[in-house]
């Protein structure tokens, strides 16, 4: 079809202009900043330091620990969210149950609440409600807050994220389950395939596209987690649950190390790109073509 240049410009350039200003230019400026040392305040005090910022990262013990926290958290959240979400999807697609839509609606609801508000809600649950419940049940050993010790605080983050995101992946898994042709399920039923072998040998292989999507979504969301981290634990106790996003934010805006913080931020981008692309290519290979 023949198209005028004028129409092309009118349709494409408004969005492209905003996109360039908001995404591309800052990304390029950002690469420049990784070679610079600057406190972000004094104009003209930027100093070129070559690769020093990147070299410095290797001796940054806290950054190393925060990579560990992020990987631990991402690993646990990835498994937890997808196992719980898949279980939810299998339950609410069981045709013999009544009220499946109502159950689905309730299980999905937490996903709509923002990470910050969710973090504050659960802070109250962990600090006040759960100890109170344990108290009234006479479980004196469980009356402490989960947020006060490092390992349980990490677990508290994961549980909260499962509460938020399990309903989301459930929705995607439901779509995947509904796409499985009825004949396949019928054949499995006629052959008398048991529940577990039906799950692992029939449903899961056919769900690989949905699994790819959900792993990608949960992987990149957990890796970038910030709001929940800020509201629920604030990175504590003693920075034991501080994730990479918080480390970077604090390095730049709290400690005013603009160049060094930007080098971390650039590395963060590389991590995310490598992890998510690797994950997608691994799970894509396991998809079954119908």
């Amino acid at each position: 079809m023949k198209r005028g240049k004028g129409w092309y410009a009118l349709f494409v350039f408004p969005l492209v202009a905003v996109f360039l200003v908001v995404n591309i230019i800052p990304f390029i400026i950002g690469i420049g900043y990784t070679f610079i040392e600057w406190d972000g305040l004094t104009p003209g005090a930027q100093k070129y330091v070559g690769l020093d910022n990147f070299i410095r990262i290797f001796s940054d013990a806290q950054f190393g620990r925060d990579i560990g926290h992020t990987l631990t958290y991402t690993g646990m959240a990835l498994v937890g969210i997808n196992v719980v979400g898949l279980a939810f999807a299998l339950i609410v697609t069981s045709r013999w149950l009544y009220g499946r839509n109502a159950a689905r609606a309730m299980l999905f609801m937490p996903y709509l609440i923002g990470g910050l508000i969710l973090g504050f809600i659960w802070k109250y649950i962990y600090n006040n409600a759960l100890p109170d419940i344990a108290n009234s049940l006479g479980l004196t050993g469980l009356t402490g807050s989960m947020l006060t010790t490092p390992s349980s605080a990490m677990l508290a983050m994961v549980i909260t994220d499962i509460w938020k995101s399990a309903g989301y992946v459930m929705i995607v898994y439901i779509t995947g389950l509904q796409a499985i042709p009825d004949e396949v399920m019928e054949a499995a039923r006629v052959d008398g395939v048991g529940f577990w072998s039906n799950l692992f040998q029939v449903k899961l292989p056919l769900l690989m596209p949905a699994i790819t999507i959900c792993l990608f979504m949960t992987l990149s969301a957990s890796f970038k987690i910030y709001d929940l981290n800020l509201a629920l634990t604030g990175g504590g106790p003693s920075k034991s649950t501080q994730m990479l996003a918080m480390n970077i934010y604090n390095e730049i805006f709290a400690r005013s190390n603009f160049g060094y913080g930007q080098a971390k931020a650039f590395l963060f981008f590389i991590f995310i790109a490598v992890f998510t692309l690797a994950q997608v290519s691994v799970t894509r290979k396991r998809e079954v073509v119908m």
Binding site: F19, V21, P26, Y33, A245, F258, F266, F269
Partner: peptide, 17 residues
């Protein structure tokens, strides 16, 4: 490609810009 860039990577230069 930009979908892979996390907000943290562009936030500071964007504020400068």
């Amino acid at each position: 490609a930009t979908m892979l860039i996390p907000f943290q990577t562009v936030m500071m230069p964007l504020m400068q810009e």
